[in-house]
Amino acid sequence: MIGQIYPVPQHSYSYELNKDFQFAAAHRIPSETAGKCQRIHGHTYFANITVGGDTLDESGFLINFATIKKLIHDRFDHTLLNDDPLFKGKSERFPTTEVMAEVMHSIIQEHLDQQGNKAQCLQVFLRETPTSYCIFRPRRGKEL
């Protein structure tokens, strides 16, 4: 989405890749403190994934844009997030915007860790509504 402005993570990598996309999904937050969000409702999420690295793979990518779309968009688009195996049957973990940003980071980073070029997912920006968003950045040295 041209014109979208989001914070840029600090890094010293030679390359920074950003992939913007949106997906439609529903969720509910089964907590008494969630108010109206306890009921199933939907959003058109806007996401930006930032990947950094110094070395490109054999195709000349940090990560192929299509791979990011497959890993995140294809998994979550037009779903009830609560039904995803990461949440289904887990009473202590709900698909809030904050948790979804962290989950998306983990999915991307797990894929990157299997590649040989040592790219890192630096940031996940996840907008839930036109006025509400979350940014997840892992702490350096912290394993998720």
Rank of each mutant, 00 (worst) to 15 (best):
K118N: 12
L56G: 10
K142E: 15
H105D: 00
F46E: 05
R127P: 00
Q123E: 03
F65I: 12
I29T: 09
H78R: 13
R140Q: 09
K70C: 00
D84Y: 00
T55L: 11
A26P: 11
S106V: 00
Y45C: 10
T44N: 15
D54I: 02
A66T: 12
E102L: 10
A119K: 11
F46I: 01
N48R: 15
C37G: 08
A34L: 10
S59W: 10
Q38R: 14
I49G: 01
L71P: 08
T131D: 12
F23L: 15
V124E: 07
V8N: 05
T50L: 00
S31L: 14
L86V: 01
G60M: 14
H43R: 09
E32T: 13
Q4N: 06
E102P: 01
M1K: 08
T67E: 14
K90Q: 08
F46P: 00
L17F: 13
F61T: 03
D113W: 01
C134L: 00
T50H: 12
L112N: 09
E58T: 13
M104N: 04
R137E: 15
H78I: 03
M100P: 02
V8K: 11
Y45I: 03
L81R: 02
E92Q: 13
S132E: 14
P85A: 05
K90W: 06
S59H: 10
I5S: 11
A34M: 08
A66C: 02
Q4W: 02
F46C: 04
I49F: 07
A25P: 03
T33R: 13
E98W: 03
C134G: 00
Q115G: 09
S59I: 03
Y133T: 02
V8F: 07
D113N: 13
P9V: 06
T44P: 02
E58F: 06
P85G: 08
S12G: 09
I2D: 14
P85T: 10
Q22D: 07
H11K: 07
D54L: 10
F136G: 08
Q38F: 07
F23Q: 12
S132P: 00
A34Y: 02
F94K: 08
I63T: 11
R140F: 11
I68E: 06
K118V: 05
T55E: 15
N117D: 09
E128T: 05
K69P: 09
N48G: 04
I108G: 02
T131L: 12
S91V: 10
T55S: 10
P7D: 15
